[in-house]
């Protein structure tokens, strides 16, 4: 026992020596992971969409991940930049490296292999590899448990996942999106077949006959409310809307594909099957 503690202390000291002191994190999932590992105190700035946890939201913002300026990042004098391959323009990475900054670029896709590399990559950069592996295993265990309860395919509820209602359009998550993955993981069926986030017309929505309507609680057109959905001309006629099966969800949690994915899947499964089962 004593030897174990001694080993642990040495290990912490060794890691501490190489530990980055000033981190810039550009990607919401990456930022969440850094804070999850307890290194939030070292983060000096993030991108605009890194709003979880609250401590990250309060940090200086360097702009949108797709339109960054290398100089704004350099101005924060970071020794480590953690980001994903969503970063644009790509030239920024080269410019940061020329300025002598270590850049760690992780996959940004919304699937489990990318999540694993994301978590392990951040863990490795922060000297938290073991914790990263534990976190990933925990997430997959929770996802598997949900999948056992609600197997994919067949008879699950048909879900309409609304991203936002900008300009009167109902923009929904189609195949290949994080929303689609989440619906499948919870044993639901996505109402939209088309790839990507697409505006869907009123008639197509009626023909789809969704059992449940889910919408992000915040979006580019301001906070979403249940009233806005019920009043929307293309949604008001849906049976799911009339019977009150409309749910508002936190987009950063549900679509973030970060360390809280396990929690997200459990919560989403509750939404799909909780009241649905009761009413059936």
């Amino acid at each position: 026992m004593k030897r174990l503690i001694a080993l642990l202390l040495v290990g912490i000291a060794m890691l501490g020596a190489g530990e980055p002191r000033r981190i810039v994190s550009i990607d919401p999932a990456v930022t969440e992971t850094v804070f999850q590992f307890g290194h939030g105190g070292a983060v000096v700035a993030t991108d605009m969409t890194s709003t979880w946890p609250a401590a990250a939201a309060a940090l200086p913002k360097l702009g949108y991940i797709r339109q960054l300026n290398a100089e704004g990042i350099i101005a924060q004098r970071p020794d480590l930049v953690l980001t994903s391959d969503k970063l644009q323009p790509r030239m920024v990475i080269e410019q940061l490296q020329q300025a002598g900054i270590t850049v760690r670029e992780l996959p940004g896709a919304a699937d489990l292999p990318a999540l694993r590399q994301r978590l392990l990559g951040v863990g490795e950069a922060l000297g938290e590899s073991a914790q990263a592996q534990r976190l990933y295993d925990g997430i997959t265990a929770r996802i598997d448990a949900v999948a056992r309860r609600h197997p994919a395919g067949g008879t699950g509820p048909r879900v309409l996942f609304i991203l936002h209602l900008m300009g009167g359009d109902v923009v929904c998550g189609g195949s290949g999106t994080a929303a689609d993955w989440l619906i499948r993981a919870c044993g639901g069926r996505n109402g939209i077949d088309a790839p990507g986030y697409k505006p869907v017309g009123a008639e197509a929505l009626l023909a789809m006959r969704p059992d449940v309507v889910v919408a992000m609680s915040t979006g580019p057109s301001g906070p979403m409310t249940r009233e806005r959905i019920v009043a929307h001309h293309a949604l008001t006629g849906l049976a799911a809307v009339q019977s009150g099966r409309v749910h508002l969800v936190d987009g950063t949690l549900m679509l973030g594909f970060g360390p809280r994915l396990g929690e997200a899947v459990e919560a989403f499964a509750d939404l799909l099957h909780g009241d649905g089962a009761a009413q059936r």
């Binding site: 290398a70 350099i74 101005a75 020329q98 300025a99 002598g100």
Partner: peptide, 29 residues
């Protein structure tokens, strides 16, 4: 720019006797 640089730093970057970050800001950004 977002990183404040004085004339000396800019000239240094152009003629090469300052740190990497300053050089990168001036020459490659």
């Amino acid at each position: 720019g977002p990183v404040p640089l004085d004339v000396r730093a800019v000239l240094g970057a152009l003629f090469g006797d300052v740190d990497d970050a300053t050089t990168a800001i001036v020459l490659s950004i």
